[in-house]
Amino acid sequence: MRIELTSLFVDDQREALAFYTDVLGFTKRHDVPLGEDAWLTVTSPEAPDGPELLLEPAGHPAVKPYRDALVEDGIPLAQFAVDDVQAEYERLTGLGVVFTQPPTDIGNAWIAVFDDTCGNLIQILAMKPGTDEGN
């Protein structure tokens, strides 16, 4: 079994595509019309054959209360790996991205949490050099 695709609910698929490509730097992989919505996925240019992220419409009535409660408490719904959390924090802040948690040392890694403007909080994480990620 392999994880080839995971998904995030987004308020608006076109705005989400713009944010995830223009701001975060991911690449569009699939954009297949499905009625009013689309099967819309992105991948990382650092791993074009890696897992796809599905930007899924947030229309189901359960989605809003679920995400609102998580965002209120500052809980991220997805986590992306970066090489340098501080550098990404500065780059994204310069592009107008709002962080709910600045770069924070959590011992074996650095993390930060930002608002993806589509209804989710996202955590970025960089393991410290020499840290065993398997632990």
Partner: peptide
């Protein structure tokens, strides 16, 4: 100025 998530992670990791 911390969220509940940040307070929880700080208490756990530090």
């Amino acid at each position: 100025g911390q969220t509940l998530f940040e307070i929880c992670s700080t208490l756990a990791t530090r």
